[in-house]
Amino acid sequence: MTTAEMTTGKVADGAGRTLWGDAWRRLRKNRLAILGLSWILVVVLMAVTADLWVPHMFADPLKIDTTPGASLQSPSLEHPFGTDKLGRDVFSRVIYGARVSLMVGIIAVSISLLIGVVLGAISGYFGGLADTIVMRSADVFFAFPYILFAIALIAVLGPSYQNVFIAIGILGWPGIARVFRSSILSVKQNEYVEAARAMGASHVRILFRHIMPNAIAPIIVYATMSIGGAIITEAALSFLGMGVQPPTPSWGLMLSDARALMFSAPWLTIWPGFAILTTVLAFVLMGDGLRDALDVKMKD
């Protein structure tokens, strides 16, 4: 409990280790983070290659089967997750649902990054009026409860797959801008920036070569966690009927359908939700691991 003095007396390692190499090594040791990363890779792989194997091994996710007895089957070998009300194979739909979720996660967060990093950089680096404007705008966004704002945006834009990216993307920029800005502010103080300026480097050069590489680490962590958040938000919006529209399989949409049948066919509820949970958890664990791996490096 006390901070006792200690000299560990480690002999300086002569080998040239890069910052990222260090971080990667540390990340590798974190078992949970690796678990998360592996699962993400599995999900991505399954989603990307879905067309190749799902319709053949299981069923076409869109195929409606109205033969009597085909709908609402409990899990079986042919339909590992059972079938839904329209006789569609739930397992295939879950796999294809991964596509939607991953797409939303990546695209929405990319939009947020695009806007957020630029605004955050301007805000943090130049300060002054630009800073005030950007930060006040961020405050306006923060004043809205997240899901409500998303609903309002979708209400205006109209419910659709594309609008979900846009809505989530727009909602995400203030968070990124804030994190990036504070990161820049702390890096800006460092002496090597002063040195670069003394050498006559232009603003752009300073920003890109000196500040960005160091300020980027927290953003990577934040972005990873945000993908998880985006996936949940898409599911929530689809659940409310404001996101992906049928018949595209989306985990949230599947849960919404499952709701009416909660008692008669509980398996419909379990699997899509579980898919969301594991995928988001994977991103959260990865994000945690990245934070720990990059953090030690940032201590100096």
Partner: peptide, 14 residues
């Protein structure tokens, strides 16, 4: 002039 002690403190492990 000031005479610093050369070298640095030893490792307490080795």
């Amino acid at each position: 002039a000031l005479l610093p002690i050369t070298g640095h403190p030893p490792s307490l492990i080795n």
